[in-house]
Amino acid sequence: MEEDDRAFGAWLGDAEGTVTAHPLMEALDRLYTSGPGPGRTQQALEGAREMIRRVQSEVVYYDSLANTPVGPLFIALSNKGIVALEYSESATASAGRLRQRGNYELVHSREEVSHAAREVMDYLEGRRADFDLPLDLTGLTAFQRLVLLAVVGVPRGKVATYAEIARKIDRPRAARAVGQALRRNPIPIVIPCHRVLASDGGLGGYTGRGGLRTKKQLLSLEGVRLGTA
């Protein structure tokens, strides 16, 4: 027994001395030394990371940009990308609306949204042609997402019509629904719904502050020459 105790101590690294062979400790080592193996471990870590990403995505940082050429904007960012850009005088009210779109924990942080805010400002002040921001379209319907992504495909300096977008998403009769989806565009400017015009050559609508005046302002910033419409 005492010999066992000495062997235990050495085996555990608690005492000096060489580990003497002991059937119990040999069996334990055989059972437990090897561990779960690298493949299994990798898989488990991926699973845990994925789960954390899912939980993480609920945190959304926001801030307001007070002085932009189109007036104050509310900007919100998840870890997946930009969630919202809104013509808004009240960040609190916008944050409240956003809370209804997803299971978000809204955190006010100038720092966390600074890179996105800079992109928006640079764009509006003519120092940047396009956006590099990933989009987070969580909480939108599949149709809305389809429309918004199609609109992202309209390049700077070009315009499309509601009907063209409808055709592009294989819903040729849905021009009106496209208009509806764009009216609820959660990320205007970045998702350039201002580049989508009415089929008759008119400007169509714009729900942002200033309405069509802002739409024209954005288009002219991008070098689009509008007719007399």
């Binding site: 437990y32 561990g35 299994r40 488990a44 870590l45 699973g47 845990a48 789960m51 954390i52 939980v55």
Partner: peptide, 26 residues
């Protein structure tokens, strides 16, 4: 993960435990 595996001795169950552990930790 290795600790959980040693405790529950099953790969799939240890994976569940790892997720639960990191969820609680988070």
């Amino acid at each position: 993960f290795a600790f959980l595996w040693r405790m529950v001795r099953d790969g799939a169950e240890a994976e569940d435990c790892l997720q639960e552990t990191f969820l609680r930790a988070f």
